[in-house]
Nucleic acid binder design. Sequence first.
DNA 1: GAGATTATGAGAGCTACTCTCATTTGGTAG
DNA 2: CTACCAAATGAGAGTAGCTCTCATAATCTC
Lengths: 191, 191
Amino acid sequence: MGLRERKKAKTRAAIQRHALRLFREQGYGATTVDQIAAAAEISPSTFFRYFATKEATALYDPVDPVFIEAAIGQPAELGPIAALRGAVRVVLGQLSEEEMEDVRQRQLLVFREPELRGAIMDQFAEGIDLIAGVAARRTGRAPDDFEARNWAGAVVGVLLASFARAASDPESDYLVALDQALVHLEAGLPL
Amino acid sequence: MGLRERKKAKTRAAIQRHALRLFREQGYGATTVDQIAAAAEISPSTFFRYFATKEATALYDPVDPVFIEAAIGQPAELGPIAALRGAVRVVLGQLSEEEMEDVRQRQLLVFREPELRGAIMDQFAEGIDLIAGVAARRTGRAPDDFEARNWAGAVVGVLLASFARAASDPESDYLVALDQALVHLEAGLPL
DNA sequence: GAGATTATGAGAGCTACTCTCATTTGGTAG
DNA sequence: CTACCAAATGAGAGTAGCTCTCATAATCTC
């Protein structure tokens, strides 16, 4: 990696770090792009070269692709839910205490700020596609199989409910809740 | 209802009608609030007195509250999924051909435009609360019961997946797909 | 019909975001 | 080391969503 690439990565990280700090300190809406740019010591023009929107600074999550990899890499004999649970365990196990906290902070922020909540949707729409794909492959179905997509919708919905709950109750251990949610789903969601 | 109220309702409807028409004709992003205001023959200021955001003109759905009413009003002996399916049947049965088409058009629009897709999230977050509440009442649980909320998350996720599918495949009969999705969910989502 | 409410329009102002162009900086070939 | 090319940056102008204020006009109440 040349100097150029390293500098870009550093600039990107600095923008996000300052952005998240400012969001936490003074709220998302009250923070302007100009403030973020000033804090990161770049021009406002440059800000938009790194992040297409202000939202994106809060939404960009380097963990996501890693998680998908892990889900695909789970042993083939596992059912799709077991594979997801395994992936969660593997990925979160690799994160340092500090990284975990960053992930959690960003999730809470995104779920609490109405302006950001909206943007989750796109990620979840992608999530359905990805999870349906993983499930279809594991059960030998076509990638656009109706039941696989339906199932993926339920998985994403369940995760969503867990995140929403975690955001409104910061005390809860959201990893435990998330795992319970998947177990309940695996059992066919009895009520 | 006095003249004032009637006029307001008419203005509101006119704004939405013109907005949706313009969105369809030239796309959501390419339509400015000024254009909508001009088409509805009001000032741009007045536009924002009726709709807080441009998005809201596309999202406001008079059918939603009716649907919740119908779900609550279903016979008590039905399971929660059966109650939802019944509510869908009842509500859509009451709509005229034209109203159905309006509802469908707006749903497609919202799911197709990335800028709008985001805003669905808030509605779905509310949806989880509402559906969890209905389910909890029907099964004699606390309103914030973990499993009821988890189940509601799955329901919402499944609906989401159906809508997304319908938006990308306009030929499909999305009412049938929606019902199938609920049946599959009721069966515990076997894969 | 007079006075209190409420809806409206005009316009100024803020901020997210886009685009263009000149300048600087990093990589590379001779 | 120099000369050149490509990429990164900053400055600034412009668009559009959205807010706020204030004056005017329409509706409601008595």
